[in-house]
Every structure is written in structure tokens, then in C-alpha cells.
Simulated scan of single mutants.
Amino acid sequence: MRKLKIMEHVSLDGVIQSSGEDDFPYADWTAPYRTPEGRDEVFAAHGGRFDLLLGRRTYDMWSGFWPKAPSSPMADGLNAATKYVVTHRPESLEWGPFEGLGPDIVEGIQRIKSQAGPDLVLWGSSTLTSTVLEHGLADEAMLIVYPVLLGTGKRLFAEGTPPRSFELVSTKAMPSGIILSAYRFNGPLKTG
């Protein structure tokens, strides 16, 4: 059974949005904190070979960049990964290898997880992340937390995300101020 890992770049106040869509004023707010050491840590967190689970907007943004990026372990890994894409227009996908997830997102993810293959990494989709959490489909989360407050933008855990508990697996502080924290999903929220 394949594992599903959520990976997100996130501000201290929970914002994951980085593009200028929806009048978001802080495009590329992660750039001042990027370092070769941080890039290598993030790539290592992918776990070698992996496949991607992407929402359509993230797929479209990435397909305009990664196929043309210079060869590197990160670019080569992303380009080689099978991209499982949530889309109503699978015929318009070009950056491969790819597969449209189908109309039932939950069933599609369950099907992919039950197949043999590398682990799945979900990146960049707040809507898809909420669905994955709601249905208990994620196994792990890697949060790459930046020392900034943005005050506006799409949040990693949107209003209505079901309560869950997590177990800290590892954490590492980078010299640039980024903190990489890996969590294992630990079931429903425990109280009392």
C-alpha cells in the first residue's frame, strides 16, 4: 500500500498561497529563504522516487515551469513522477507521465494508494488537502514553515477541516529560519 504525504510551504499564520491569483499580493514570498541546503532537505523528504497528487491549478502552474527547468535532482524527480491530477479536462493534460484522477476523488485516491508503486506526494492544493484530510487519506505531512506572517491568502487548513491529531516524527531548523517538521497522522482529535 502506498503512503500519501502532504508537503506544503507555509507561513507562520498558515498561508500556503504563493502565486498572484485571486489578487494575492505576496507572490513568491518564499524566495528570500531558499537555499541549496533547504532545497536538498525538501527533496530528501520526498523519499527518493515518488509520484505526485495534484489539483489542476497546481498542475497547470508547475507544468509551465518544471519541464523547462535545468536538470537537478528535484526537477528530474518531479518530471519523472507520475502526476495524478484532479481535473474535469484530462484530455488537456500534457506534462507527463500523468493520469486524470476521475470524477470520484476519494475513490481515485484510494485506488491509487492500493496499487503497487512509490509513495504519493500532495503539494500545493488547499482544496484537495481538505478533501484528503476529511476522508482520512493522508498518512504524513511535511510542513516547511517560513518565519513570516502574511495575513491573507489560502490557508493550509481551511475553515471546516476536520479535527485530527498528529505525531511529530522529526523537525529540523535551517539557517535561513525555515523549520521542516514531519508529522504522522494519528487519527481523530483526542481531548480531555
Rank of each mutant, 00 (worst) to 15 (best):
V15E: 08
L189S: 01
E41A: 11
S114G: 04
T161Y: 00
P188Y: 10
T171G: 11
R164Q: 12
F24E: 09
F65D: 07
Y26F: 15
M7G: 12
D139R: 03
W123V: 13
A75W: 05
K68S: 11
V145F: 10
G64K: 04
D76V: 01
H9I: 15
G48K: 11
G177F: 14
Q17A: 02
L54W: 12
F166C: 04
G187C: 07
P175M: 09
R2I: 01
V15Y: 11
R39T: 14
F157D: 02
K5N: 10
A116K: 03
I178W: 04
G117P: 00
D28A: 14
L93G: 10
L150K: 05
E91H: 04
F24C: 08
R39E: 15
A173Q: 09
V169I: 14
W95S: 08
T129P: 10
L180Y: 07
A45L: 06
P175Q: 11
L4Q: 07
P25H: 05
Y59L: 13
S126I: 00
E41Q: 10
S130L: 13
K83Q: 08
P73N: 09
A75I: 02
G47K: 06
P25Y: 12
E21F: 11
D119M: 01
A69Y: 11
F98C: 03
E99Q: 14
G192N: 09
S11R: 01
L53G: 00
H135R: 08
L93M: 06
E134Q: 07
L133C: 03
M61W: 12
I178V: 02
L101H: 13
V169R: 14
A173C: 14
V10P: 10
P67D: 07
M174Y: 03
R56H: 14
L168A: 09
F24M: 03
D23H: 05
A80R: 01
R111H: 13
Y183C: 00
Y33W: 09
A80D: 09
L4T: 12
M174N: 09
I105R: 07
M1W: 14
S125M: 02
P162Q: 08
A138I: 00
G108A: 08
L189C: 01
S71P: 12
T35M: 09
L150N: 08
V106A: 13
F65W: 05
A80E: 07
A75V: 03
G192L: 11
P162K: 04
G124Q: 00
K172M: 05
V10R: 08
S130H: 15
M61I: 14
D60P: 02
R184T: 03
Y33S: 04
T87N: 07
T131W: 10
K113T: 02
Y146T: 04
T35N: 15
P162V: 10
S19Q: 15
G117I: 02
D13E: 05
Q110D: 10
P70A: 09
W66M: 04
T129A: 00
E94D: 11
P163G: 06
L137H: 01
E91S: 03
T30A: 09
K172R: 06
K113V: 02
I112E: 08
R2M: 05
S126E: 07
A75T: 07
S181Q: 11
F157N: 01
P67M: 07
D40T: 13
L180C: 02
G160R: 07
I179G: 12
S165E: 10
P103W: 13
S165G: 13
F50S: 05
G100Y: 06
A75S: 12
R49Q: 12
K3S: 15
